[in-house]
Design a protein around this nucleic acid. Structure first.
Lengths: 163, 163
DNA sequence: CGGGAAATGTTATAATGTTTCATTATTTCC
DNA sequence: GGAAATAATGAAACATTATAACATTTCCCG
């Protein structure tokens, strides 16, 4: 049997964070975008886990680190990170998650476990093709796609009692 | 060339509303669900157009009709309507739209025009199949799917200057 | 170094959604 | 029909998420 995706298994998550930060630094340098201290800090916080983090959770984490900030600061940082494809907003949760395909130009599909709340981001070309086709049939010009699937991850299926 | 979908064209919209209300009444009767005055009123308001309506918009419309109501009233009505598949919540807009496939047990796909804000609901089995397949590959047990496509509807494509 | 753009700080407020408890309506069952 | 149980609504307060507006600082570039 295949192993569960990384996001759903225990793993050395510091490696995830470091990789994401390194990647972000490179990307921003290439684009002449300024990955300032706050932006980097917010990115690190979002990557603290594979669970989406609300803007006010980020705020609270900043405060825990002794860094006072007001909502606009966090929203601005998140907006920057989104624009550069470093985080995604999960509309169904009003929360943000690190992008695991940063820089790749992709259309993400998110598998959100309702039990452990971990999120796995997939790139599924057949899904995108099918969506494009459906939109095309309706003569609709697609720009952005929000595709979020809620359910149970492999780990939680085995123990879910239906909570 | 095929005509645009109904939602994007001028049409006798009162017919939409009436059909939706009739359909809702029948469905609720079959299910022993109580389509109370408020619920029916909210459903009618949501169907006022093919544009999603926010909960507070519904509230304002109720007020315009002389009917005082507090937020929970509206949220409760919307929740009931959702549970019975009579309206859908559009997560990316925090708003609600009438379901055009009420009672059919379906998984909707929403085409949201960013210019005129009309929404067309589609049922696209190939899309659902592709999503299921992608989730299955990740051993993920899908329950709910949020699939919202933002872009330009046929009508607005011809005149969109990029606003 | 100085001028301009970008980023951040700060305060206030808007928009969206929920909790809680009281009250009223509706069904059920004798 | 009438009492008990259940479902629905009313009402007030509050929690959460997001933005507006304007002042200040930082950074880049010449």
């Amino acid at each position: 049997m295949a192993r569960s995706p990384l996001a759903y298994r225990p793993h050395n998550h510091n490696a995830c964070i470091d990789a994401a930060l390194d990647h972000a630094r490179v990307l921003c340098q290439q684009r002449n975008a300024r990955l300032t201290a706050i932006r980097e800090r917010v990115l690190a916080l979002v990557w603290q886990s594979h669970r989406p983090l609300g803007a006010y959770d980020v705020l609270a984490e900043l405060a825990r680190g002794g860094q006072h900030a007001a909502p606009p600061t966090v929203y601005r940082a998140l907006e920057f990170l989104q624009q550069h494809g470093l985080v995604h907003r999960i509309a169904s949760l009003n929360a943000f998650v690190g992008c695991s395909h940063a820089g790749e130009r992709h259309r993400g599909l998110f598998l959100i476990c309702r039990r452990c709340r971990n999120v796995l981001e997939l790139t599924a070309p057949p899904v995108n093709a099918a969506v494009e086709a459906a939109a095309g049939d309706a003569h609709f010009q697609a720009e952005d796609v929000t595709l979020e699937v809620s359910g149970l991850c492999p780990t939680c299926q085995t123990e879910a009692v239906d909570d």
